[in-house]
Design a protein around this nucleic acid. Structure first.
Length: 467
RNA sequence: GCUCCCAUAGUGUAGACCGGCCAAUCAUUCCGGCCUUUCGAGCCGGUGACACGGGUUCGAAUCCCGUUGGGAGCACCA
């Protein structure tokens, strides 16, 4: 089987269904996974993609058994083309494309079509040697002009393009088009099963003509339905522009739908695999569900995500207390084996100073009791000035009064910025010590915020995975 | 316009090939309840679908036809 993207940029979620499902079939039935980079359109190539695509697949957990690049295979395409011309099923067309198209729709042959193999062989030579200039001639594969489906009638197999190719320079000027190169490669590389999107249904019919002309066995074609991916930025050409303008930080900007972005957010690639294998290969058109993917991802990462406090819009509160306050908080409420983190809160001049989320406090009235989670109780005296008084350490009194339980951080807590996929930046204070305890790239759960992948870049930062 | 593909709850999916075991599965979302030192965590419960119309049949989500709806293609893109 094969996965055959054009190297126009890095992979995004739109690519993952084909990549994962092909890989999954190979793994289940002992098949071979071929990555084929289809770079026969020199205008739509990003040289970096030759590196990025295998990396993306690697992150996805796809095992590449073999990798080929179409621009290494011009001679093969040329050789098969000659065969097709000799067989009288391909012709070099010099008719104006506009007219060629009209004739085709009308089901009529252009003059060139029936000239005979010898003439076309000569013309083919003139395509290769530069006698014909770009746009003047192209190689057409014959099908049936009276085919009831107009989309299937004669299609272009080779065209002339003079601009340089990032890999082959100006060594070749005649480029194969999708249907010709794909049919040749799929057969020569021994693909017995082709799994691709339903948008290729007509291409399959075209390619089958080539198989029949050359007496090749026709592989098993499977076409899954179209996927519409909501709320995602996927178009590589557009992303590239915006990166250049500085509107995105790069291909891994968390707002994007690239695999690099999903990786930066801390997605587990197994979530994508589970998602797509559950969706399967049926040919109904579907809309991609972030909700379902996120749910799968959450259950994969939750067990390993240590909990930490994060206080957005911090507000300082003070209360009188002479002695040290100690807190021991489990890293994961369901997994005590992950241990606890300990905090010592030291009073200064007989007063304790802590930050709490502004929103949690402003909603309470003067005189209400709150619980600083895992630390102690405080009765709010003057909310506007952030003044409270120590109210013991008995959680039951807070429950009786139905007081709020709030997160808190100490005065030496590091500031932290969290970048969300929606493009927002949450600014606040993270729990003291987190910068030492967390390894870069670790996925944690900031309680009441969501899962985040922490990193350091001029301070403590995090990409939001999801809630 | 022509051709092709498709149609089960908000989303995805099982059941369809081989009609009865389907008063339709599972997951997710949503809504309740329980639990919990605030976790979008766990447990329990609930709402919610066979697009429509004919036909075949004792019996249709399942087979046939039509309608409607959605999608794709008719490129010198892949």
């Amino acid at each position: 089987m094969r996965f055959a993207p054009g190297p126009s940029g890095p992979l995004h979620i739109g690519h993952t269904r084909a990549a994962i499902l092909n890989d999954e079939y190979c793994k289940r039935y002992g098949g071979k996974f071929i990555l084929r980079l289809e770079d026969t359109n020199p205008e739509k190539i990003d040289p970096e993609a030759y590196e990025m695509i295998p990396q993306d697949l690697n992150w996805l957990g796809v095992d590449i058994d073999e990798m080929t690049v179409q621009s290494d295979r011009f001679e093969i395409y040329y050789r098969v083309t000659v065969e097709l011309i000799k067989a009288g099923v391909a012709y070099v067309c010099t008719t104006d494309p506009e007219i060629w198209r009209e004739m085709k729709l009308a089901g009529k042959p252009v003059e060139d079509r029936d000239l005979g193999p010898q003439e076309h062989l000569e013309r083919w030579g003139r395509m290769l040697d530069g006698t014909y200039s770009e746009g003047e001639a192209s190689l057409v594969i014959k099908t049936d002009l009276d085919h009831r489906n107009p989309a299937v009638r004669d299609f272009i197999g080779m065209r002339i393009r003079d601009g340089p190719h990032p890999r082959t320079g100006d060594r070749y000027r005649v480029y194969p088009l999708y249907n010709l190169s794909v049919a040749i490669d799929d057969h020569l590389m021994g693909c017995t099963h082709i799994l691709r999107g339903k948008d290729h249904l007509n291409n399959t019919i075209r390619q089958e003509y080539i198989y029949r002309y050359l007496g090749w066995d026709i592989p098993v074609f499977m076409h899954y339905g179209l996927v519409s991916i909501p709320e995602s930025i996927l178009k590589t050409s557009l992303i590239r522009q915006e990166i250049q303008k500085g509107n995105y930080t790069g291909w891994s900007d968390v707002r994007l739908g690239t695999l690099q972005a999903l990786a930066a957010r801390g997605f587990d690639p197994r979530a994508l695999r589970e998602y797509w294998t559950e969706v399967g290969i049926k040919s109904v058109d579907i809309s991609f569900s972030w909700e379902n993917l996120i749910s799968k991802n959450r259950s994969l990462i939750d067990g390993g995500a240590r909990r930490f406090f994060f206080v957005p819009s911090p507000m300082l509160i003070t209360f009188k207390h002479e002695s040290v306050l100690n807190a021991a908080i489990p890293y994961h409420p369901q997994r005590p084996e992950l241990g606890m983190r300990a905090h010592r809160v030291l009073p200064e001049d007989g007063s304790v100073r802590l930050y709490v989320p502004e929103k949690d406090i402003m909603g309470s009235g003067d005189g209400s009791l709150i619980r600083l989670k895992d630390l102690c109780n405080v009765r709010l005296v003057d909310i506007c000035r952030g003044v409270g008084e120590f109210a013991g350490n008995d959680i039951s009194s807070v429950k009786e009064e139905r007081g709020k339980i709030v997160q808190w951080v100490g005065t030496r807590s590091p500031p932290m910025e969290i970048y969300t996929p929606e493009g927002e930046t949450l600014i606040g204070l993270a729990e003291e010590g987190i910068e030492k305890e967390v390894t870069p790239g670790e996925i944690v759960q900031l309680e009441r915020i969501g899962y985040c992948r922490v990193f350091f870049n001029n301070g403590l930062k995090a990409n939001m995975t999801h809630e």
